[in-house]
Amino acid sequence: MLFDPFTIIAQIINFLVLVWLLRRFLYRPVLDAIQAREDRIASGLRDAAREKAEAASERDELVRRNAAFDRERDVRMKQVQADVERQRSTWMDAARKEHEAQREQLRTALDRERDEVDRAIDGQLREGVFALAGKTLHDLADATLADRMADKLVERLVGSTNEERARLRDMLMKGPVIVRSAFELDEDHRKSLSHAIKDLAGATIDLHFEVPATRIDGIELVSDGLKVSWTISGYLRDMEEQVRSLLRKGTDPGTDRHD
C-alpha cells in the first residue's frame, strides 16, 4: 500500500514542526536583519537628505549673508569715499584759505616794504632834488633854492586872479599866518614876502617864519587850515611815477608767478 496513515500524520507533524523551526531560526532572523539594515540605510538616506537640505539652507543663508555683506561693504565704501572726499575738500579749502591768507600777508608785507622803500626813495629823491636844484641854481644863476622858492611864492601871490585874491584875503584875515619853508629865508626875501602879503591883504599881517623838523618840499603859506604853497612835488611825482614804473617792471613778473 502506497499510503501509510501513520506516516502521513507523522509527516504532517514533522512538516509543521519544521515550519516552526525555520520560522524561528531562519526567516525571522534573516528578515529582521534585512529590515534592520534597510531601516538603517533608510535612516542614513533620510539623514543624508536632511543634511543635504540643511547644507542647502546654510548655503543659501551664506549666499544671502555674502550678498548683504557685499551690499553693506559697497554702502560703507561709498560712505567712506564721500567722507574722504568731504574731508579732502575741507582740507583743500582750509589749505587754500591758508594759502590765500599767507599770500595776502605776503602781499601786505611786500606792499609795506615797497611803501617803505618808496618813502625812502622819496626822501632820498627829495634830498637829491633839493641838493641838485640848489647846486644848479648856485652854479648857473648864482642864486639859492630858498631865494628862488620865495620869489616863486611871491610871484604866485602877485599873479593870482581876482577870485584867488579874494579867497587869499579871507584866509589871511582869519588869523596868524605861518610861512613854512624847507630852508631858512634870508631877511630880504622875508620882507618881499611880507610886502606881497600886505598888498594882497591890504593890511599888515603878522608873519611867522619857521623851518619844520620834517622837511617840506618847497615853501607854503598856512592860515586857519588853508594853505598856499609852491613845492617841487609835481616834479617829484613825475619822477616818482617813472621810478615806480621802473620798479614795477622789476617786481611784477615775480608777483605774477606767485599768482
Binding site: 519544521l18 531560526f25 531562519l26 534573516v30 529582521d32
Partner: peptide, 24 residues
Amino acid sequence: IITTWVLMLVLSAGAWVITRRLST
C-alpha cells in the same frame, strides 16, 4: 520519518548556526 528528521535537523541546525550572528 527518520530521513525527514535528519533533514529537519540539518536544516534547522544550519539555519541556527548561520543566523546566530547576523550582521545588520
